[in-house]
Computed example of a mutant assay.
Amino acid sequence: MSKLMSPVRLRELDLRNRTVVAPMCQYSAIDGFANDWHLVHLGRFAMGGFGLILVEATGVLPEARISYGDLGLWKDEHIAPLARIVDFVHGQGAAIGIQLAHAGRKASTPVSWREPSDLATEAQREAAGYEHWLPVAPSPQSHDPENADFQTPAELDHAGIARVIDGFVAATKRAEAAGFDTVEIHAAHGYLLNQFLSPLSNHRTDEYGGSRENRMRLVLEAAEAVRAAWPDNKPLLARISVSDNADGGWTVEDSIALARELKALGVDAIDCSSGGFAEGRIRSARQYQVPFAAAVRSGADIPTMAVGVLGDVVAAEAILQGGEADFIALARGALDDPNWPHHANTELGNHDYALWPVQTRRVAEYNRLMSSPA
């Protein structure tokens, strides 16, 4: 069996293979509630053979959402709709986690496909679940002053920081109640925890700013608190932007230091992305973020997840075989082909169709036979 399609264990969670669906915001919730769109969106990846599916960035507090259309886990009423999704995914043999997030100064932004005319009346705003609020951040600096979608945030005081940590802990407990197999702390992409890490956005002079040790403090406090609230037998993940891709920003060396600290606190794998700040945009290309996963894996001696245009099956297998990462995560590639693991399994030489749902297994085998040379 290929390494990509081989089973793997994190703590006591057994994954059927090393393929992962990366979190993808759908901007389709009202008041944070999951609905039928989320069930079908996530459920099809479980049917498609993925080993682990990660639910989109989910606000740990109402003000933590990127937009009014984001999922939330700040109240108990959010649990049941998510549990319905968890149960379906488990029924298809996949594992499922949820990314817990706080958008910080990138919160309260528009849903991109809605025009102002779509929200012109109170009835339209109510139907869309529209809300608007003042974001919070480590420092009162806009993510991008040239972009009107981003506000100048309020600076978090110590009570606000405590509220953030408490929000992560409460959401973690709700994730356990919903039956999730893992949670992922979102400390990437220029959102709140990443904002505390980066010198580009953190200009504080207290114990949460200045030195790298101080800038890491909130991430580590949140990770320690989440780990304490999360069952010992279940793995904990963290997503980080390994580099800000900008002069004067967070670096690969900083991420290795952070990953070592996270590992010591009980984080089991690092989901390695990059960027997220207006100062550090980077052009995507095939496998462009794999070196970040490789650097953190070797430098911190921790399993890593590679992301970023990894749909080439042979290349994905080579990444794992070469020790550059332990998991292959797809987002846009999964949207394009929700059956990617099934097709990868066949491409890598395994013609056992047991991974397919029983309802589609014979059709998949028939299609292969029909496409084979006579």
Rank of each mutant, 00 (worst) to 15 (best):
D352S: 05
R204E: 01
G249R: 14
T152S: 00
L262F: 11
P116N: 06
F45S: 04
L330M: 13
E122Y: 07
G72A: 14
G299P: 08
E184P: 05
H143W: 15
P116F: 06
Y68C: 14
L156I: 01
G93W: 07
F88H: 15
R217L: 09
G311R: 14
L52A: 11
L54P: 08
H189G: 07
L134C: 09
H41W: 13
L265K: 07
G59Y: 01
D70T: 09
Y130I: 02
L156M: 08
D271H: 15
V8N: 03
Q321A: 15
L200N: 12
A29L: 02
R368W: 12
F292S: 02
G190W: 13
N233D: 14
I282E: 09
Q359T: 15
I96E: 07
W37F: 15
V267A: 02
N350Y: 08
A177V: 09
H38S: 01
T121A: 10
R215V: 10
A101G: 02
E317L: 06
G49E: 00
G209P: 04
G129Y: 08
P341I: 02
E146T: 15
P140R: 08
S108C: 12
L236S: 03
S28R: 15
T172F: 06
T360L: 14
D87E: 15
V290E: 08
A107R: 10
D247F: 13
S198V: 07
I79D: 04
H132Y: 11
D336G: 11
S274A: 14
I53G: 08
D352G: 02
P116G: 07
A354K: 06
H342R: 11
L100S: 12
A294V: 03
W250Q: 06
V296Y: 05
D232N: 14
S298H: 14
A103V: 02
G160L: 00
H143I: 09
R114S: 02
D70E: 13
D271C: 13
